[in-house]
């Protein structure tokens, strides 16, 4: 088979070849899209939409249950609820050093694991803790109950104003 014949053959098959390659590439593209969607959905599948244990958003009752100046430690939720006058805040009791649960004291918090000490605002006073304790958003539900959202951290010193 010489070179010229080759060329003629090519010309005859040119149209067929383009069509063929279009079909192939389309198929491959479609399959790739499908594979992509399936992979994406399977990855989203892995992220739980509801918690099986304690919810990250939970209600703690009406504001009037908390006297002014009171500090209520919720051991299970790992949060301290504090009311000063008409302002309410929720402070995390998870040590920012290595995740131990800190103890609430009269003057602040202290961590039993590595001796970190925080003041009432959660700022680090001593010890290896690199950051102050987190403050969580406190909100009011339509029924007038307090709701803490542990997934939204707010600036230290952010209080919720409630009616007296």
């Amino acid at each position: 088979m010489n070179r010229l014949e080759h060329l003629e053959d090519d010309r005859a098959g040119a149209v067929k070849k383009t069509r063929r390659s279009f079909i192939s590439w389309f198929s491959v593209g479609a399959l790739a899209v499908c594979a992509g969607v399936m992979t994406l959905f399977n990855l989203i599948f892995l992220k739980p939409r509801v918690s099986q244990g304690a919810a990250s958003k939970f209600r703690i009752g009406k504001p009037e249950n908390y006297a002014s100046g009171s500090v209520v430690e919720m051991k299970e939720a790992k949060v301290v609820v504090r009311r000063d006058g008409n302002r309410i805040a929720a402070i995390s009791t998870i040590c920012t050093h290595l995740g131990c649960t800190v103890n609430s004291t009269d003057v602040g918090f202290e961590c039993p694991c590595h001796g970190s000490i925080y003041d009432l605002q959660g700022d680090v006073v001593a010890g290896p803790a690199p950051e102050p304790l987190a403050w969580y958003r406190v909100g009011l539900t339509p029924s007038g109950e307090l709701e803490i959202d542990k997934q939204s951290v707010v600036d230290a010193g952010t209080y919720l104003e409630v009616e007296a």
Binding site: F41, N42, I44, F45, K47, V50
Partner: peptide, 9 residues
């Protein structure tokens, strides 16, 4: 219901 894509899988 609660798990995205769970019913399909």
């Amino acid at each position: 219901g609660a798990v995205f894509f769970g019913r399909f899988l």
